[in-house]
């Protein structure tokens, strides 16, 4: 499933397209400690986080993630948006809490397990 499909099915706001919406999403990862994401997220994962720091973009790039889904609705700062655009990292936004988003993403990505 592509990031674009997920954006449509979960009704997410696309903050940064990054030219990456047609990337295949390999799965999801939820976490707010950057070191944990770097150590445990797998390439192609869509990362759900409440973090808004610019280092989120660097972590997504280094970990080879398909995108970042910001939970909790607050838009990221312009510097974060600019960095994500420069790096081509899609940034998505939703008002829901991480738990809700992870549940909905899980249903979409792994319907047979739900």
């Amino acid at each position: 499933m592509t990031l674009r499909d997920i954006v449509q099915r979960l009704a997410l706001e696309v903050v940064v397209d990054g030219g990456g919406l047609d990337r295949e999403v390999s799965g999801g990862f939820s976490g707010d400690l950057l070191s944990n994401v770097l150590a445990a997220a797998r390439p192609g994962n869509l990362w759900i986080t409440i973090q808004r720091h610019v280092n989120v973009v660097g972590v997504a790039q280094v970990a080879g993630l398909s995108g970042v889904l910001l939970a909790g609705g607050e838009a990221p700062a312009p510097a974060v948006v600019a960095k994500a655009e420069e790096m081509g990292i899609p940034i998505l936004l939703a008002p829901d809490a991480a738990f809700e988003l992870a549940g909905r993403l899980h249903r979409v990505l792994l319907p047979e397990e739900t």
Binding site: S35, L38, G58
Partner: peptide, 11 residues
Amino acid sequence: LPDRPNDPRSF
């Protein structure tokens, strides 16, 4: 410090 290389473009 974890043995992870810096990616200057990212960080």
